[in-house]
Simulated assay, not measured.
Amino acid sequence: MEIAERAQALALKIRKHKAGIETEEATKNAFVMPFIGTVLGYDVFNPGEVIPEFTADVGTKKGEKIDYAIVHDGQVQVLIEVKKINDPLRIEHASQLFRYFAVTNARIAILTNGEVYEFYTDLDAPNRMDSKPFLVLNFSDIDDTLLPELAKLAKDSFNLESVISAAGELKYIGQLKRVLVGQFKQPEDDWVRFLTTRVYDGSFTQRVRDQFAPLVDKAMRQFLNEQVNDRLKNALGGPDAFVSVSADATEPVADASPPVVSLDSGSGDVQTTGEELDGYRVVRAIVCGEVPAARIVARDTKTYFGVLLDDNNRKPIARLWFNRAKKYLGVFDENKVETRIPINSIEDIYAHADHLRRTVLRYLGKELAGAETPAEANAVPL
């Protein structure tokens, strides 16, 4: 199993169980140990690989402990400090990491609440942990572009030098992306001023600010949608292909001409592949006998390619899990619980045509006469 699949399995576990986790200790057991053991591949019960409650006395500070130290080649390489799930991470939480970082051989420090992992090193000053992370991995919305970097810390592919050499670029790219995401969500005054003064010759007064703030917001959303539209039009087969992209992924797409593809909100890194679009066309071909093709909408995300009825998240028809070595078709039962079925090719989707049609008919309040649920012997229930 590749690291992307292992990470997605942990993300699913976190989504299912985090509401019932109330303590730091429970966070460690439920989420952090699986991260170390399952995702990174270390034996959490082997003190030669993972040291819990790691102690390295610092000056007058005696007996302080770091939650975990990961050992590779006989040396402590990674320090991990854990906080309770749902607690926001702040640099104040990392005081022990700062102290331990200076007196061990570790070059990587991780601050986590079991869902968000902040990775630190010593880019600014040797043997002194930076105040800002070079990488932030959020299991509620995994950025697949970061997984190759995470793999460099895994037991079977450990490459510390490569991590350190890439850390500087990762640090600033990550920060810049987070700034841009913030500006696209809610432009700040400085951002509004910067753009307004490029197109407006008068003084930037409060009245002008009030006039241009909504224009800047609208222009940025339209620009992003146009960029996505251009990319998807190319993927769908040229400039004549129709693509509609919602500025807000929770809003229905107004024009219902097929095919319709919508990208997840804020997911500028999403890349729709030709294979995903082929799978979408197969699903649409299967179910368009039950509903007009225009109502069958695709929404691509970083982790899967979804097919929805009426662009409604509450009406999922199928999910195409193609961003991995092994492909899966996600289908839904009457309770909207997803089951992933391994497939070898796009054509294998046709074997589950009855299930897909039945899903659509349930949303329409109908039943597929005479059809029984096919046995999914190879299904992987979630």
Score class of each variant (00 low, 15 high):
T196N: 04
G168A: 06
D201M: 09
F242Y: 12
L232A: 00
L180M: 10
R193G: 00
W191K: 07
V199T: 08
K218L: 13
R198I: 11
R221N: 13
G238W: 01
L176F: 10
G168T: 04
T196M: 01
W191R: 03
R209Q: 09
R221D: 12
L224G: 10
S203L: 13
V181T: 10
F204I: 03
K218I: 10
F242W: 10
N234I: 06
T250A: 10
Q206A: 15
P214T: 07
V228M: 14
I173N: 11
R221F: 09
P214I: 05
F223Q: 15
V228G: 04
D248Q: 09
E226Q: 13
S246E: 14
K233R: 15
F212I: 07
T250M: 09
N229S: 13
F204Y: 14
V199W: 11
L170S: 04
A166L: 02
V208S: 03
T205H: 11
D248K: 04
W191V: 07
G237R: 06
T197F: 01
D230V: 12
L215G: 06
L176G: 08
L195S: 06
V179W: 15
L236T: 03
A249E: 13
W191L: 09
E251Q: 14
V216M: 10
D230G: 09
A219K: 03
I173C: 06
P252C: 02
R207E: 15
I173G: 05
A213K: 13
G168H: 05
Q227H: 08
A213M: 11
G168Q: 01
G238H: 07
D230A: 15
Q183M: 06
Q175G: 12
A241I: 00
D210S: 13
V179A: 14
S244D: 09
G182V: 01
Q211W: 11
R231C: 07
M220F: 12
R221P: 04
D189G: 03
D217Y: 12
